[in-house]
Design a protein around this nucleic acid. Structure first.
Lengths: 160, 160
DNA sequence: CATGCATAGTTCGTCGCACGAATTAAAAAG
DNA sequence: CTTTTTAATTCGTGCGACGAACTATGCATG
């Protein structure tokens, strides 16, 4: 058998290295919008609709204190706001501000564009196959919607 | 057209969400070995062989000061050591210690196992297709070997 | 209605980690 | 020999992760 790195890589290395690639692209894009990757992620989740802290914490797999800090910093940047919950005075809803919607939309659109370029050497059928297979993996593992579908994100980004 | 979340997800959302999933699994695994994700990543890179700081910085896309700190902390944990470069007294090589090799091997093996389970609902042909397509994306984008192939990693982990 | 339990979120303390600018020391180029 | 380039570290700063403890509120029970 040839050297391992001469052959096709396995599913495990492929998944980990593609994750590294996506993280790098995501972080670079976020940085260009004055965001950290975590702030970008928060904004993307909130593009769909406002969320409670408990729900956000669960989606982002963060300790409660981590989320409090992240929302504090993002609120201080004027991108989100906390709103009281009329039904439960303990709870708050986190929503995008007008500026937050604008930044989130732009960040999201540009990040979509960059991520879309990554599989650039695949033909359309191969892309569809990759999307279908990865999509099943994501579905089966119940990954939260930390990034909207372009259809969802596009309409959310346009509703400004 | 049906609701966007009823249909198959697109390549962009698939890539970002699968990255989120892999990150979560990787972080959880690292944590169980007393490592942070960044330390785990450093150890995995070093499983192949010792690296210079410049090469490590390039592979991990880190600022030089960030890498210095990461190596400081991992050295303090007894998992890596800095060795002088006989050819260039400015430079250092970073290598795994005996304990570092052990921890890296165990972390790597367990993380492989967990990542391998993610596409559990795909049949073998589908897994091979996914690996081939993602592998091409990774290759075309020149992603560094931040995670060894199981063949490489297995032999590296066994060389103890 | 009062009490106890559960939940929502924040505060606190700590450590890891990211960056850029500046610095020191050594190697390379002229 | 001097100047430029390179390797890595130090410094200062801010972000982000955690767990424990806390405060306040809602819910269930007697």
């Amino acid at each position: 058998m040839g050297k391992p790195d001469d052959g096709p890589i396995g599913i495990v290395a492929a998944l980990v290295r593609s994750s590294f690639l996506v993280n790098a692209v995501y972080a670079k894009s976020a940085r260009e919008y004055g965001l950290t990757p975590q702030q970008g992620q928060l904004l993307c989740v909130l593009m769909a609709r406002p969320h409670g802290m408990s729900e956000l914490g669960a989606m982002l797999s963060l300790a409660k204190s981590s989320l409090t800090g992240l929302v504090d910093r993002t609120e201080r940047n004027g991108l989100v706001r906390r709103e009281p919950d009329p039904q439960d005075t303990r709870a708050v809803w986190v929503a995008l501000t007008a500026q937050g919607s604008k930044v989130a939309g732009e960040f999201y659109t540009e990040t979509c564009r960059r991520i879309e370029e990554l599989p650039g050497s695949l033909n359309p059928a191969e892309r569809d196959t990759l999307a279908a297979l990865l999509g099943r993996v994501v579905l089966d593992n119940e990954v939260p919607a930390v990034f909207l579908e372009p259809d969802e994100g596009g309409s959310a980004a346009r509703e400004r």
